[in-house]
Design a protein around this nucleic acid. Sequence first.
DNA 1: TCCTTTCATCGATGGACGTCGATATGAACT
DNA 2: AGTTCATATCGACGTCCATCGATGAAAGGA
Lengths: 105, 105
Amino acid sequence: MQTRLPVLCCGPATKPIGPRQAGALAARFRALADPTRVAIVNRLAQGECCVCDLNAAFDLSQPTVSHHLKVLRDAGLVASTRRGTWAYYRLVPDAVQQLRQTLGG
Amino acid sequence: MQTRLPVLCCGPATKPIGPRQAGALAARFRALADPTRVAIVNRLAQGECCVCDLNAAFDLSQPTVSHHLKVLRDAGLVASTRRGTWAYYRLVPDAVQQLRQTLGG
DNA sequence: TCCTTTCATCGATGGACGTCGATATGAACT
DNA sequence: AGTTCATATCGACGTCCATCGATGAAAGGA
């Protein structure tokens, strides 16, 4: 897609970004702007996980957890696979790394 | 403060985080969950900047820009210094780097 | 002291978000 | 088909947020 990312922190070659890129970056950061979603991402960082485990872990209603998973999916931070009855979620490493590079990696 | 940070992405030693840490991390990410604030941080990454320049740059009302600066200040991502009539804002590199490490540094 | 400039704060408003119960979808098993 | 379990979607409600105009506070100059 794009070879270089704009950097938000103090690299030696910091470049200005336009409104579109700022909006795209903000949308991704917004997906992490909720404690439940941060915890979900942290959990998925330990490996693939099915929704039923997440439902049991977070003391929230099942629709609420499903909603947060959708937000993370729409942001491209996680992906899901249906295997039989259960749906398994996993991190999308490239997306997380892209955010990290944005912060000055 | 703390020697090690929880990591949200695919490091080899990813550790689970508690609700408090998840809330603190989400609060910081929320400070970046707005296009204007992402653009402000990107602008400050190029060096110190006074508020009047930011007001001119973002086509928003002066109170709105001031509000965003306060959000970033409360999150610890930027700091300000008053010199004479003008207030100068700058990035807090440690805070940004901390977020970066959270994403898998 | 009065005026101007710069920035922060206040109060209000419209829209977005997190949460839930109810319901729909979809897969496995009898 | 009918039943049960696992997820997703829908609709509603309360709260938070971005934005604005108006106002306050602080500094410098006439």
